[in-house]
Design a protein around this nucleic acid. Sequence first.
DNA 1: CTTGCATACCTCGATAGCCAAGGTATTATA
DNA 2: TATAATACCTTGGCTATCGAGGTATGCAAG
Lengths: 111, 111
Amino acid sequence: MADAVLAAGIPELMILRLLQDREMYGYEIVQAIAARTGKVVAPGEGVVYPLLHGLERAGALKSRRRAVGGRSRVYYGLTAKGGRRLDRLAARWTSLNGAVEAVLAGGAHAV
Amino acid sequence: MADAVLAAGIPELMILRLLQDREMYGYEIVQAIAARTGKVVAPGEGVVYPLLHGLERAGALKSRRRAVGGRSRVYYGLTAKGGRRLDRLAARWTSLNGAVEAVLAGGAHAV
DNA sequence: CTTGCATACCTCGATAGCCAAGGTATTATA
DNA sequence: TATAATACCTTGGCTATCGAGGTATGCAAG
């Protein structure tokens, strides 16, 4: 099932969150994540493009080609389904971080 | 290489942190993590034991057999090297969480 | 005008971390 | 005396991620 620890899943979460604000294209997303995280997290194109394709297949994203300045770009937008997926992953991250912080803080151990 | 996104690495971080406080044995660690995180994170024995062996091989842990109440247990303790490793991973987690929060918060995008 | 860099898309193979499931043996409990 | 809990371990498989590659266009420099 691969669920318990959420093997990171950070790129997916970030992509969904970015697309919540506005449509973006793959290359732009790659740059945006690196920029906004100061390169702390910087998934390459080999991560982002397959994720975009998978998310679209899953109905979380919707794509459309647009020609901008002679260039052809594939813009992605969040669907309602994608929004729910984002909410779920964001909540999961919060809970995951809480778990890590709890152990790092130490001291108080229930049970 | 596999470094940029820190593919979780949560179990390792937690093990090192637990052993910073006191010696523990594998089975105990498995229970402790599940308990302290309310099962949000609950790596099984198939995760913990190989990690303990790997960390010991890497010089981050030191083990010794102890007989407790007729039972034989392998207790692990943190070495100086393991302490540095813990510091590094903990810092990394903080920075990683900061990156995720930054993207989730959205709005302000530097650069 | 051609070399090279940034843009923009994509795929592939390898690896690492995690997981479930199993296996052994002992001790406590019902 | 069966069953659950303790305590150790390994194996095989999956998935996310990574790096490196490949194609093609636009633009700037030389």
